[in-house]
């Protein structure tokens, strides 16, 4: 709690558990009854698990304990893990990407280190990942790894630079790597 009077309180809430119908409805009911607003959220099925990540806010400050207490019955009934982090006032701002946005797709025979090697190259150049998902596909005999990520390019780095940057990795890891611009068009 930042205890700053009338400032809205924000929490980062993570909920994860065996996938089944009713998780989203149950979680949003708890938040609705508390008077919370779901400001941003991303929920997806990973393996057999359903994972929810939400940024929720409430006009009136209240404690993390209160939020966890209200989730207790629902979490136990659905066998979900619920984590809550209170966000300080300074953490509440939406960083709006200002540079080019590019999509990097990587796929090839599964091997250790694909995610690490690709993202290390990006991190070393201050290229920020805004979205990423990976999946293991193919057959047990021939597992294929797929990595898709979106990154915001800092000033001075073009999509072509990223292509060239990952060219070496492509050869070394023997995977396909594609980079393309997905910068939104303003219409």
């Amino acid at each position: 709690m930042d205890g700053s009077g009338d400032a809205a309180v924000h929490f980062a809430v993570t909920i994860i558990g065996k996938d089944r119908p009713g998780i989203v409805a149950g979680a949003s009911e708890v938040l609705y009854r508390l008077g919370c607003n779901i400001e941003d959220s991303s929920c997806t099925m990973l393996g057999g698990e359903f994972a929810m990540i939400l940024i929720v806010s409430h006009e009136k400050p209240f404690s993390k304990t209160r939020l966890l207490d209200d989730f207790k019955a629902f979490g136990e009934a659905m066998q979900l893990s619920v984590f809550v982090r209170t966000l300080g006032k300074s953490e509440i701002h939406y960083e709006t990407p200002s540079g080019e946005i590019c999509m990097v797709s990587v796929y090839g025979s599964d091997q250790p280190g694909i995610v690490y090697r690709v993202t290390k190259e990006l991190a070393e150049r201050q290229i920020n990942i805004s979205d990423m998902n990976t999946k293991l596909i193919g057959t047990p005999e021939q597992p294929v790894y797929v990595l898709m990520l979106e990154a915001v390019l800092p000033e001075g780095i073009e999509v072509e630079h990223v292509t060239r940057l990952l060219e070496k990795l492509k050869k070394e890891l023997k995977v396909e790597i594609g980079v393309r611009s997905v910068t939104p068009v303003s219409l």
Binding site: D40, Y94, T96, P97, S98, M103, S130, D131, N133, M148, E150, P184, S186, L187
Partner: peptide, 19 residues
């Protein structure tokens, strides 16, 4: 609106830079 035509959910919709 383009919202009526969005096809992909995966990374289709997120906050963007302001005009």
């Amino acid at each position: 609106l383009f919202l009526d035509r969005i096809t992909s959910l995966k990374t289709g919709l997120f906050r963007r830079k302001k005009y």
